[in-house]
Design a protein around this nucleic acid. Structure first.
Lengths: 240, 240
DNA sequence: ACCTGAACACCGTTCAAGT
DNA sequence: ACCTGAACACCGTTCAAGT
């Protein structure tokens, strides 16, 4: 990598390069400030963005809205991030940081770690439903995503799972939770059940007949049941 | 619904109302035209939009681009559709129409119908990878999506599956394919494997150790293997 | 009756000009 | 050295004016 800046104050790798934040010094602006109101550091920007997305939806979220809320200007945001996509990526990563896999990793078996990941990710998606499309758009590679990945994979490898199975178990749980979250998404307009019920039963008899089953809100019990099925299947793979 | 137009030429339900296209007369503009170049009917607009999204990506796709390609103007698009979201919804639906579940429904058992749905949906997503986020954003309710749903559910019910299991089987296969498609998505930038390989092995030993497994491109065999696992599990549920 | 140029109110992004 | 008003090139959407 060619280093263009000789001074040591700013972020070292250029924003925009992949995962530049890994090497970024933590909260550089706050270090040299007094105890006035908090500085406009990257963490505060991203936390505010997450709050605005939760409140107004990801479509209504704009950099002008973010800058106004922070009492700053849009141009200033570009001093911290390469573009809007990077902010969204870090917002997703902030939400992934809410998933607690550390306690299970230190105390339980590998199934417990995967269960904690599943439950924690599901809870995070329920708290921040607007993040689902962004979570799916790219494989999450922010610092929290990497830390979670590392922690869970380490637990699986430490328990003796072969690398291939460990990798598959990690992605399988992730996909299960995402699939469940997609299923639970309701359209913005009228409820899905109403839509199915209004379909002509003569042209759509099968949908009409299963409308209740198709739209019955997936409960926590159903989530746990499916997750346990998955974990059982994985356990069976370890001792055939 | 309040009907504001007394003439019988235009689309009957107002664009924008949920699933208005179900009652829309097929290609109304082309009916009264000669054999000149094809009219600017809804089907041609949506087909062109799909082509543009495939070629330029969903982010670069704009209504101006669409209107220019059609030799029309953006305002004219609003005579056919309520807004851009509706066009995207119908583009997704057009792609779902490429999934052939009809042949299996007329000849095979219910497992064959689910397998055809799985393979067809996967093929459609490989042809149109940019549609994945849009497919996940809302439960697909376009005409083709409903037809597929009806056809597959009817096959399952006809085979004697209870409605709850039929509904679950349908969504399970859908989620499996979507999960697989998400997994196969590569970032726009450098390959994921390179990113993992460049991570510091001392801070991320588990990821480094499983980098190959995490990024090995999922092959067709892997897809079939997982899909069959799913179908076997469902079959076991029918005769316990 | 149908279509559209031009406008409107935004958007992400950039940069010359401020302090 | 850091910040930002104002501009730039767009965007989705609307509507008065054309034919």
């Amino acid at each position: 990598m060619t280093t263009t800046s000789a001074h040591s104050g700013g972020p070292s790798p250029a924003p925009g390069s992949p995962a530049w934040w890994l090497a970024r010094p933590a909260a550089p602006d706050t270090a040299r400030r007094g105890r006035g109101r908090p500085a406009l550091d990257a963490a505060r920007i991203v936390a505010t963005a997450l709050r605005l997305i939760d409140e107004h939806g990801v479509d209504a979220f704009s950099l002008r809205m973010l800058a106004d809320t922070l009492g700053s200007s849009t141009a200033t945001l570009y001093r911290h991030f390469a573009n809007k996509d990077e902010i969204i990526t870090l917002v997703v990563d902030l939400a992934l940081g809410e998933v607690d896999t550390a306690s299970a990793a230190s105390s339980g078996g590998w199934q417990d770690v995967l269960a904690a990941m599943g439950h924690g990710l599901r809870a995070a998606l329920l708290r921040h439903p607007d993040l689902l499309p962004a979570l799916i758009a790219h494989v999450p590679l922010g610092p929290n995503a990497l830390a979670q990945r590392e922690r869970v994979l380490a637990a699986l490898l430490d328990a003796g799972l072969p690398p291939e199975l460990a990798a598959r178990a990690f992605t399988a749980v992730g996909h299960y939770v995402i699939g469940f979250a997609v299923q639970q998404r309701e359209p913005d307009g009228p409820p899905l059940a109403d839509f199915y019920r209004r379909l002509d039963p003569s042209t759509h008899p099968a949908i009409s007949g299963t409308a209740h089953s198709l739209t019955s809100v997936a409960t926590d019990d159903e989530f746990v049941f499916g997750l346990n099925l998955l974990l059982d299947g994985l356990t069976r793979q370890t001792a055939p």
